[in-house]
């Protein structure tokens, strides 16, 4: 069994295996990542840090590329601001 850690996505706690990226944690929480300029929900597209569709606020830092960042214990992830 791999080790798990807990993060929050929009305030709700979720346990993910160590090594999971923030983009995956957001998907596991059933959320989209960002809202586009015309109001569409968006999720990851390229998975490799190029498209910027997976942007989210991580520990209050806005516009992080969530597919390039690995979850750490207690991380606060927000997609709703």
């Amino acid at each position: 069994m791999s080790e798990h850690l807990t993060v929050t996505v929009n305030g709700a706690e979720i346990a993910v295996p160590a090594g999971t990226t923030v983009a995956v944690a957001i998907m596991l929480a059933g959320q989209s990542c960002r809202t586009s300029v015309s109001g569409e929900p968006r999720g990851p597209l390229c998975g490799m840090g190029i498209c910027y569709e997976c942007r989210a606020a991580i520990d209050r830092v806005p516009h992080c590329r969530s597919c390039q960042i690995v979850c750490s214990p207690g991380m606060e992830i927000r997609t709703d601001e």
């Binding site: 993910v16 990226t21 995956v24 944690a25 968006r42 597209l45 390229c46 998975g47 490799m48 597919c67």
Partner: peptide, 20 residues
């Protein structure tokens, strides 16, 4: 094509490698 869960082919593989 902009709907969540429409994702690159390599993109989805990368997400699975990242824990999805």
């Amino acid at each position: 094509w902009t709907l969540p869960n429409v994702i690159g082919a390599g993109g989805l593989q990368a997400m699975v490698k990242a824990g999805l």
